[in-house]
Amino acid sequence: MSTPTQSTVELVLDTIGTVAIVLGVLLALVASVGLLSLPDVLSRMHAATKPQVVGLLLIVIGGALHLRTSPDVWMLVLVGAFQLVTAPVTAHVVGRLAHRGEGGVRRDLLYVDELTDRPDEADPGPDDQEDDDEARDEDGSPHRNGAAVGRSRRRRGDGSDGASLDSGE
């Protein structure tokens, strides 16, 4: 609240709210750094979880403390709840794809990989063996098709449809 506060209680609430927001923002900042510094997709996802869950929760708490007189406070409570429900969905889907695809995880940086060590029919894809990325790139299309995860995407060609997303620099 930018209006001058009347009582000490309000001042204290504002202060706590501001501290919560600052903490949330710092988490978001560190997460952005982690997004740049961590080595592969799966690791970066851990950094991404922070602003999406903890950071947003902190900021929502701070915002609720600031807006405490407005009925919209309860909406902020809902924001927190919705975020808790929806955030893992993306993380799980992306994590799954990243582990199966190439380039998603640097296997040389894995201490143990118990999913790769125990493949079964539910986890297709010979690419989960230990050979490294370069070898796989030269392998060509059958490999990629085999490792495509989605049932509906199997028959597609060699990844050209994702080129706009995938080909960076």
Binding site: L27, V30, A31, V33, G34, L36, S37, L38, P39, L42, S43, H46, A47, T49, K50, V53, V54, L57, H99, R106, L109, L110, Y111, V112, D113, E114, L115, T116, R118
Partner: peptide, 28 residues
């Protein structure tokens, strides 16, 4: 858990800026 591991990931993120890449595991 949220608080502790947030701080942990924050520390690892910052370490990874200068230090060696962080190693991980896939655990069953």
């Amino acid at each position: 858990d949220l608080v502790v591991s947030s701080l942990q990931v924050a520390r690892q993120s910052l370490q990874a800026v200068t230090g060696p890449p962080i190693r991980s595991s896939v655990i069953a």
